[in-house]
């Protein structure tokens, strides 16, 4: 394979924690195979390319762009639009880019509430002047501008057309390498409409080995409050495990070590709204003949919105605060 025909790949980090970048590194020795077969033309975390480099590429120059992170401000939107323009195939990589992820939990509050909490009200903040970030600031060197803060955390697909979705928080390295291989082998058509990759049609229960005993839930516990009985379905034991409502691909990593599934791979099957789908299932699993008892049980769940929509607040019907 000569240098001219080498594929061009890019990875970008928008509103996210950086775990997605790490997950790409986690493919380990395969990374060498990837860079042998393709040129990295943009990857701020790992290689020194600047905005003007990307801007100078011809449209469609990048064959595969892995875009991780949500869109919370104007700079992220600008990068999303730029990378869409420069990429043949744009992938929403990880839960934040697909459905808002953890940052989108902030959608339950208004920007004013968020700023107040972060810059004035939080007990560990010392800000006697009540200084809040501003988009424009006068300084000695003239007016400075930082990106606009958006009222909501958005998905990549809210901004631009997305070809593939690789779910996970972060996507599992083995799945990522499978997708890379498919790309290098020409098995990923360049354009698709939000097609899922690096996951299966089934839910996490498919890969989970814990035993279902078909008993109803008699009370909810959090995993720091009790040690689960090994080998037994966590949800039946009262630990809120979203496995049944979460698409698989992760290999049930969490439940294998007795940690309840938090739902990072997003809704399973035909479900569009992961939280609603899980709530629907949960209602059927309670050991409660009477509505009042069901209410008591549900009241034991701490932060239901954040629990059921932990990774999909930008995606589901709830959409947070409006």
């Amino acid at each position: 394979m000569n240098a001219v025909s080498k594929a061009k790949v890019a990875m970008y980090w928008a509103g996210s924690c950086g775990g997605c970048d790490i997950s790409l590194l986690e493919i380990g020795p395969h990374l060498l195979e990837l860079v042998a077969a393709a040129d990295v033309v943009f990857w701020p975390c790992a290689a020194d390319f600047k905005y003007h480099h990307v801007a100078s590429y011809p449209d469609g120059y990048i064959d595969l762009c892995l875009f991780n992170g949500s869109v919370r401000n104007s700079e992220q939107e600008r990068m999303a639009r730029l990378l869409r323009q420069k990429s043949k195939t744009l992938v929403a990589y990880g839960a934040c880019a697909i459905s808002g992820g953890i940052p989108a939990l902030a959608n339950l509050a208004t920007p004013e509430e968020l700023f107040a909490r972060s810059y004035t009200d939080c007990p560990s903040v010392d800000n006697p002047g009540g200084v809040l970030p501003r988009t424009e600031t006068e300084s000695l060197v003239g007016e400075l501008e930082i990106p606009h803060f958006y009222p909501q955390v958005l998905r990549l697909s809210d901004i631009v057309e997305v070809d593939y979705l690789i779910p996970g928080c972060p996507p599992q390295a083995t799945r990522v390498w499978e997708v890379c291989q498919a790309f290098l082998g020409g098995a990923l058509p360049a354009r698709a409409h939000e097609q899922l990759a690096g996951c299966t049609d089934k839910s996490v229960c498919d890969e989970c080995t814990l035993e279902k005993r078909l008993v109803k839930i008699s009370g909810f516990r959090r995993h720091h409050e009790a040690i689960p009985e090994p080998g037994w379905c966590l949800l039946e034991q009262g630990f809120v495990c979203l496995g049944a409502a979460t698409r698989s691909g992760c290999g049930a990593l969490c439940t294998k070590v007795n940690m309840p599934c938090r739902g990072c791979y997003g809704p399973s099957g035909e479900a569009r709204d992961q939280g609603a789908a899980f709530i629907g299932a949960l209602g059927s699993l309670l050991n409660a003949e009477l509505e009042a008892r069901a209410g008591e049980l549900i009241d034991q769940i701490v932060d239901p919105a954040g629990t059921f929509y932990r990774f999909t607040m930008s995606d589901g019907d709830l959409k947070g605060h409006r």
Binding site: K202, V204, C205, D206, G243, S268, G269, A281, S284
Partner: peptide
């Protein structure tokens, strides 16, 4: 049941 999508989580059995 859509066999391709059903995981056998057995939520439906109890309801």
């Amino acid at each position: 049941v859509n066999e391709a999508l059903c995981t056998g989580c057995q939520t439906c059995l109890g309801v």
